[in-house]
Design a protein around this nucleic acid. Sequence first.
DNA 1: CGTGTTTGACCGGCGC
DNA 2: GCGCCGGTCAAACACG
Length: 505
Amino acid sequence: MDQQGRELTFFHSGDFLRQNPDLSDRSTDNSVDRGKSNVKEVDFFSSDRTENLPLDQEMKDGSKSAIVVSVVNTRLNLLTSSSGISETADGKKSNNELKKLQAELDRQHDDNKKLRSMLDQITKSYKELQVHLLMAMQKQAQGNRGEQKGELNGIASSIKSAQQFMNPRPFAALDVNNPSASVDKAQDLSSASPTNTTESMSQINPGKQVSKEAGLDQTSQSWGSPKSPRLEPGKCEEQVPEVPFRKARVSVRARSEAPLITDGCQWRKYGQKMAKGNPCPRAYYRCTMAVGCPVRKQVQRCAEDKTILTTTYEGNHNHPLPPAATGMANTTSAAAAMLLSGSTASREGLTSTSSFFPSLPYASTMATLSSSAPFPTITLDLTQSPNSVPFLRAPLSTTFPLPLHGYPQLLGHPMYVPPKLPAAAAAIPSVQLRQRHASMVETVTAAIASDPNFTAVLAAAISSVIGTQRSNDGSSSNVSAPNGGVSGLPGSPQFPQSCTTFSTN
DNA sequence: CGTGTTTGACCGGCGC
DNA sequence: GCGCCGGTCAAACACG
């Protein structure tokens, strides 16, 4: 392929930060403006940053937060540029402005501290709940083993669901997927989850081991294949067969003249089609890093702007990922998790395309959900300038629906889809809600820790999530349901497959 | 010769 | 039931 020479490669995030200390939007625009002469490569997904900036450290030392640093730097630059020009009449004004800005900065630091403390609390309560749930699960297993099939089906499902959430990392080999965010969970969950071994086995052999449990991870089998049933009723009986699975996709639009982006994975092209309404063909790629890896991606240029390249990732890798690809896995998983959790609110009547963060002027253009797509799709538009990151300004009142049914996957790891909960989703024990919430927070933070650009898109979700924690009835979700069929089925929520789509345009 | 790409055929879902 | 469309398969082909 003569195109490989022009292939866009993402910088490692650490390099990106070093070369773009002000976190400007050059990362996306350069590829267009200066792409041919010197294509700027931005690694949105590298795990290096994650390793260098573990979340815990960030939480203890606010200055280490890449997000904060970027924003702060930007503001400081503005300050120095304005205050250093003149010492005359403007000097006082500049000083006043400086003070105002500093005060604002302090305020934002305080907000940041609050957010971090909230995250700490959530993490603590999450761990505590793990212990309690384990005890409850053991009691249930011992005392109610024979009753689970009957009227206690809901309870059993709930417990199982809780188990699944306590095992977001069933595949130990995939630790590389989240070197940062999974540290705590790895320690806690590895010892706390009795089902780890079983799940790991089924994940390791996605092609053959479609057991009742493994069948839940439909994505690993056929996330994108129309020929493969989305649901294998016979294999999901134990998991409440009437709960179909849903696929989530994360679309990211980025400017690139390169035919492909190097995301750390190896891909083999297996097809190309002319999509209706777009003169540019759509290429289909399959991950070839491991035999049977279900991850695929679609690459297509935008019809309106052919400098915009769309790459869509779907599915979960069933193999360890190289460092260059771990960030992507985290990012896409986080986005998918948010999407899926948000789409749950669809059952509450929210339909049609809407902004992911309608209250955030920039994020609204960077992360959107589409209901027109066959699957829930979150689009991360990296063609927009992330310069004005609304992160610290994100109002805590911004609603973000709590996941009522959990995530099919977290942090890029295959994960069992929790069984259908009792018909009244609102009756989910608060324990589960909190637990899932914690999982979501960790997911989001993992993504943020791994990707500065995605940070701009998802950062607001943190505050949203935390804000939702206080009023987690999910009734005021801003997230639309891309899957129209889902939105109309209040009684039969559909669980997404552990499928992540990530597109880079 | 092995690997990857191209491309037409095929299949299933979906709307009319 | 039919046709459209998206997605996948697989034979043919290209390349190192």
